[in-house]
């Protein structure tokens, strides 16, 4: 079976600095993996490289998504192919209502996938249904995207987008940051609801707290640009107890 995501010996340079130095990882459909690591280990570089942000230069190695070269695609092609990045810091876009943005995005992806666009009424119904499950109210849908949203609102809005875009590969970058305990539960519920045999998830996180709610199949420790250890869910607890010091030395 072709893996959903196959990263081999990935080297990435950003602003003249080598950040990822030979990262390898395989994620199969149906699996949830967590990547944990200290600040500066390259977590965000990995997610932004996989999503196609400009400025992240791949100097060696590569990443294949369902057998295709992911790194050759434009960011919007990756989205159309089913890659979704949940941002650590979602960007606010004054002047574009959340609802309008959702519609533009979902229809763009549907067009690219050769599916029919949603009609206005049907889409409204769909959004309301998914939004309600995530505690995203009408008021948020009317407001400009992410503008003056609280940390929790931003992350719930990210998960709402993920639910609407129905991706195959979900990259969730520090989705737990800035969340209080109730918001964390709501967001985790949204993620769990999307776990499916055809879908894979990569949870990129500094802390163990999200992993208490979304139980990963595997945990990878990223330090100094490489995966230095892979283990089961129990690894998260060890990290929570003793920190990353052991891996920083090893790397």
């Amino acid at each position: 079976m072709t893996p959903l995501l196959d990263i081999t010996n990935l080297h990435v340079r950003y602003q003249g600095k080598d950040i990822l130095k030979g990262l390898s990882l395989t994620l199969n459909a149906g699996e949830v993996h967590a990547i944990m690591g200290p600040n500066g280990s390259g977590k965000s570089t990995l997610s932004l490289t996989l999503a196609g942000r400009e400025g992240y230069a791949v100097t060696q190695g590569g990443a294949r998504y369902r057998g295709k070269n992911l790194l050759d695609m434009e960011p919007e092609e990756r989205a159309a192919e089913g890659v979704f990045l949940g941002f650590q810091h979602p960007v606010d876009i004054p002047g574009v209502s959340t609802m309008n943005f959702l519609k533009t995005s979902v229809n763009a992806v549907r067009r690219a996938r050769g599916e029919a666009e949603h009609d206005a009424v049907g889409f409204l119904k769909l959004v309301r249904e998914k939004a309600a499950a995530l505690g995203v109210g009408e008021d948020m849908l009317k407001r400009s995207l992410n503008r003056d949203f609280s940390g929790g609102e931003k992350k719930r809005c990210e998960i709402l987008q993920m639910a609407l875009l129905e991706p195959r590969l979900c990259l969730l970058d520090e989705t737990d940051s800035g969340l209080d305990i109730d918001a964390l539960k709501t967001v985790a519920g949204g993620i769990n609801a999307l776990r499916a045999p055809h879908r894979g998830m990569l949870l990129i996180t500094h802390y163990q707290r999200l992993l208490g709610h979304v139980r990963p199949d595997k945990i990878h420790v990223l330090a100094r640009g490489r995966i230095v250890e892979t283990g089961g869910p129990e690894l998260a607890e060890e990290l929570e107890a003793s920190g990353y010091a052991r891996f920083l030395k090893a790397a």
């Binding site: 979704f84 960007v91 533009t104 987008q161």
Partner: peptide
């Protein structure tokens, strides 16, 4: 950043 955010949601550049 806003452009990339939109692209990552499938909207062409």
């Amino acid at each position: 950043e806003a452009l990339f955010y939109m692209q990552s949601r499938g909207i062409r550049r």
